[in-house]
Simulated assay, not measured.
Amino acid sequence: MNTKKSTYHHGNLREVLISSALEILKEGTLQDLSLRALARKAGVSQTAPYRHFEDKEALIVVLISEGSALLQEHMVKACQGTDDPVEQLINMGVAYYDFSQDYSAHFRLMFGGSLEDKEKHAHLFEQEKKGYDVLEQVISNCMKLPHSPELSPRLIRLTSWSLVHGLASLILNDVMNDDVPKGDNKREVVSEVISFYTRSMFEK
C-alpha cells in the first residue's frame, strides 16, 4: 500500500501534496512535476490536488513562497547570538548555504526561473524583500565599521549574495567535485571562503 495513502486523512491533504511535490522534485526535475504525477505520488485520486491547487503554476507559487519564508527564518536565526555585524554576515552566508542543501527542491524552484511570469505574483516579491531587508540591515551595520570600504551598500549586497549563491549552486549541482572535499567538509570550505571574503572587506 502507498504509505501516503495510508497516512492521508481529511484535513491534511494539502500538506501531503506539498510533501509529495518536494519528493518528486528531489528525485527528478520540474518537468516531472504535474498534478497527475502529484496525485500518483501522494496516493490520492487524480482530482484531489485540484482542491488546493488550480494548476501546476499555483503549486509552484506555494512552494516558492514556503521556501522564501524558510530562507528568511534561516537568515534571521543566523544573526542571533552575536552583535558583531561581520560575524552576522558570515553566519548568514553559511545559513544560506545550509538552506540550499537542506531544502534543495525549494532552492532550485526559487532561483531556477520556474515561473514564466513571476510578475503576476506580487506577494512573492514582497516576501523576498523581507529577506533582502534582513541582509541590508546587517550590511548597513558593517558599513559603519572603521575599515569598511567606500562602496555602496547595494554593491556589497550584490557581491556578497553572488559569492554565497554561486558557491551553494556549484556544490548543489556537483560542479566543484575536484575543489571541495566530500561530505560535511563542504560546509567548512564554504564557511572559510565566506569568512575570508567578509573579513577582507570589513577588517584590516
Rank of each mutant, 00 (worst) to 15 (best):
Ser20Ile: 00
Leu155Ala: 14
Met1Trp: 06
Thr47Met: 03
Lys186Val: 03
His121Met: 00
Met92Val: 06
Val76Gln: 02
Ser45Cys: 12
Trp161Thr: 13
Arg108Thr: 15
Ile64Trp: 02
Gln72Lys: 14
Ser200Lys: 14
Ser6Thr: 14
Phe202Cys: 07
Leu155Met: 12
Glu87Asp: 15
Lys204Ser: 10
Lys5Leu: 04
Leu145Gly: 01
Lys77Trp: 07
Val61Tyr: 10
Asn91Asp: 11
Asp179Lys: 12
Phe111Val: 06
Lys182His: 09
Gln101Lys: 08
Gly93His: 00
Ser100Tyr: 00
Phe202Asp: 06
Asp184Asn: 07
Tyr8Val: 10
Pro146Thr: 09
Asp117Thr: 14
Leu172Asn: 13
Arg14Tyr: 09
Ala105Lys: 11
Glu128Asp: 14
Tyr8Asp: 02
Glu126Arg: 03
His9Ala: 12
Ala42Phe: 08
Met143Trp: 09
Val180Met: 12
Glu150Phe: 15
Ser45Asn: 05
Ile171Val: 15
Val44Tyr: 06
Lys118Met: 09
Leu124Thr: 03
Leu17Phe: 04
Lys129Ala: 10
Ala58Asp: 15
Leu155Lys: 08
Pro181Ile: 13
Asp178Leu: 09
Glu119Gly: 13
Lys5Ala: 13
Thr7Arg: 05
Arg51Lys: 14
Ser152Asp: 15
His121Asp: 01
Leu158Met: 12
Arg187Ile: 15
Ser65His: 10
